[in-house]
Design a protein around this nucleic acid. Structure first.
Lengths: 337, 337
DNA sequence: GTGAAAGCGCTAACAC
DNA sequence: GTGTTAGCGCTTTCAC
């Protein structure tokens, strides 16, 4: 059986309170007693029971990272970085993966989870409002990470997705492309409300180009298959695009495959670009040009925000923006024409 | 504040024991009382405190799935299936991802984790012995899943990796290849101890071919970059292979890229094959032939094993083997020559 | 600086 | 069938 505080107290010849003080780094313990207690702890291989501790304190030492859709392209990197950053602050992380059909965004499930968690990081292009509200109602600290984050009173670490889209399209323009299509808009979005689409249009207009309605295709999810289907439709059009900007890398991977299947060369006939810098894009044929998001920044800031709010629930709301970088690779190479 | 058993008891006008009975589905409760209690539960939006329950019962309702290396190619699928299967049995799952440099295989960390978990599924080509021992010593049910599983007294759901390798190489042989190389052996393995290598050799010998020493390359990890490097070396050899069997899909993806960069065509100049059936292989150029493992079977059996052992610690050790299937795709197409 | 004791929310003997 | 109660292991007033 695992040993308890009481066992340690008995062996060290002190009270449980004193052992507790030592375990929790309470400063006012004499060096002599502390030594005895630590020896007893080592001897018994004592480890605190997290459930008892949580029952007593109401704190779990766990953060949740929720990724509601399959369409955060850099999800893997982000998860890794969040785990690292949280670890540095003494927190563990549970990752809540959930598809759109899944009901992890339902309020009831959300606060069931919330009970076991000191704070929640929500990473989604558009944070599910009900989730965030339910969490907030339960008094659980929430920070939005890497999304468009139009939401109101909630800490957030955002990405300037409009600007990222604009930069990507700018790269395509500099590569000499003029008929630039885009894949990945939300099926329900209006041009006015969607940052990525806004950035795409802005870049076009700056270059003196008029957006072509048929050149903007939605994608309900951001999987390779969605990119494949959309690109297939795009490339069958009469005024076939000479470039496709995809809102995420998996879409772009699918789009490249569609181009190939249509007998077209990438980048010679059509350039393809993504967002997210997933590893797959460094090994694809051709390698995939993309916009990298600084996931390390995202993760560190997000963790710093929640832990700050856990300790200080009434601090002012903070908003910071993570940097991004265009990564030119083969799929947009201007010299291959 | 969240409401407690006591609150429900007060509202329903019964004792806490009765409420507990209702919550836990204890059969001997009169319909009338049960109704009152359920109404009170609904009214107060009562949810049991898992920490108190765990503190009391010693059970957490959580299983751990540990994936010690980066080299379980079907890890994503397996994780998804395990979560599903566990959910059906009333268990949640925590996924323990850990690189080889990570010390998640260290005994101390292992049983720290073990405390919070009713059972552990270890998925690894070769299960880390210390981990398994530490867990077993802590009396925690462990089942090995999808590995070679030479380990002794421990439930396991295995894959016949030797046979899978043999089948893959058989497919390559039927596609007319004769100089078949392999990538992915463990750096420290001897031919006698390694099932995959044994299967590879067996298939060659059956076809009357002698294994070429230089055709077997190790890979310390199973990432695209490892496959890339190994294939690059392989394809620079004088008696260049006309096929490469990779022990996992990411290796194969890297190998295909290496072939391309060396000016070779896949499958015309060199066929490439993997193991794992990752989604990426359905979108790569060319699409990747592979051996699919039945991860659904793996997951269901593994979960069934742990839960059985949790309920019956002294049952006899069980070993079952999951089926696998060769999936021919473009990268081994015999008609492209 | 250290100890005694209450209690976090729940389950499970045991009594009725 | 239902109620009373002890106690899981810990933290934390409150005395000393």
């Amino acid at each position: 059986m695992a040993s308890t505080l009481k066992d340690v107290a008995r062996v060290a010849g002190v009270s449980v309170k004193t052992v507790s003080n030592v375990v929790n780094g309470y400063p006012h313990v004499s060096a002599e007693v502390r030594g005895r207690v630590e020896a007893a702890i080592a001897q018994l291989d004592y480890r605190p029971n997290v459930f008892a501790r949580t029952l007593r304190t109401g704190r779990t030492g766990v953060l949740a990272l929720v990724l509601p859709d399959g369409d955060v392209p850099y999800a893997d990197d982000l998860a890794r970085e969040v785990v690292r950053a949280a670890g540095n602050q003494g927190y563990r992380v549970v990752i809540e993966q959930a598809g759109p059909d899944d009901d992890a965004s339902s309020p009831s499930l959300a606060d069931a989870r919330a009970m076991s968690v000191d704070g929640v990081l929500v990473s989604a292009p558009v944070a599910p409002a009900e989730l965030v509200e339910a969490l907030a109602a339960a008094g659980r600290p929430v920070v939005l990470v890497g999304g468009e984050a139009r939401q109101g009173h909630c800490d957030r670490v955002t990405v300037d997705v409009a600007r990222a889209a604009e930069d990507a399209v700018g790269h395509l323009l500099r590569a000499g492309r003029r008929r630039i299509a885009a894949i990945g808009a939300y099926p329900t979005e209006t041009a006015a409300t969607a940052p990525r689409t806004a950035g795409y249009h802005r870049a076009l207009r700056r270059a003196g180009l008029a957006p072509v309605p048929g050149h903007l295709l939605p994608a309900s999810r951001h999987r390779r298959a969605d990119g494949y289907g959309a690109a297939r439709a795009l490339l069958a059009q009469p005024g076939r695009p000479d470039a496709i900007f995809c809102y995420s890398d998996p879409l772009a991977i699918g789009a490249m495959r569609a181009a190939f299947d249509a007998g077209l060369r990438v980048p010679a006939d059509v350039a393809v670009m993504g967002v997210g810098d997933i590893e797959e894009g460094r090994y694809s044929r051709p390698t995939l040009s993309t916009v990298a998001i600084d996931t390390g920044f995202l993760a560190r800031e997000a963790v710093a925000r929640v832990t700050a709010r856990i300790d200080q629930p009434d601090a002012a709301v903070a908003v910071v923006t993570a940097p991004h970088t265009v990564l030119p690779r083969e799929s947009t190479d201007a010299t291959v024409r």
